[in-house]
């Protein structure tokens, strides 16, 4: 059974790019969400093995969504995938229980390395 990943990003282009990278590596994209609120709701329905989450999104940002998901499921595997690389955000995310912090623009290998390690450690 392939591992199931949920992709969260407000940009359709990024969701399609990450989906292609993951599917070519043998993962299943269980679902997508375009803001943090939708991600929290869809996580409860889909229970994916991991979540790749953007930060800058309308309605609810990715850090808040990651905290909500980890509050309801402390074993959730959440990775941030964002254009923001400020040290305070990275620390905030890691303290919240996020497994990895990938900065855009990224090479496909970086995403696969992050997801692979996070799932391996889960």
């Amino acid at each position: 059974m392939p591992k199931r990943i949920m992709v969260v990003d407000d940009a359709m282009f990024m969701r399609a790019t990450v989906k292609r990278i993951l599917e070519q590596a043998g993962y299943e994209v269980a679902g997508e969400a375009e803001n943090g609120q939708m991600a929290v709701e869809r996580y409860g329905e889909l229970r994916p093995d991991a979540v790749l989450m953007d930060i800058t999104m309308p309605v609810m940002d990715g850090i808040s969504a990651a905290k909500e998901i980890l509050k309801t499921d402390p074993k959730a595997v959440v990775l941030m995938c964002t254009a923001l690389g400020q040290q305070n955000l990275v620390i905030d995310a890691i303290k919240a229980g996020v497994k990895d912090y990938i900065v855009k623009p990224f090479q496909p290998e970086r995403v696969l390395e992050g997801v692979g390690k996070a799932l391996g450690a889960a």
């Binding site: 940009a11 282009f13 964002t82 254009a83």
Partner: peptide
Amino acid sequence: LSAISELGNMVTGNAITRLSQNGYDVDITP
């Protein structure tokens, strides 16, 4: 259009990361 918008997001996100390294506390809007 989504790709072009994401280009703006990545450039601005990368830029404010650099600004934060210069001591500024900043965030971006989508």
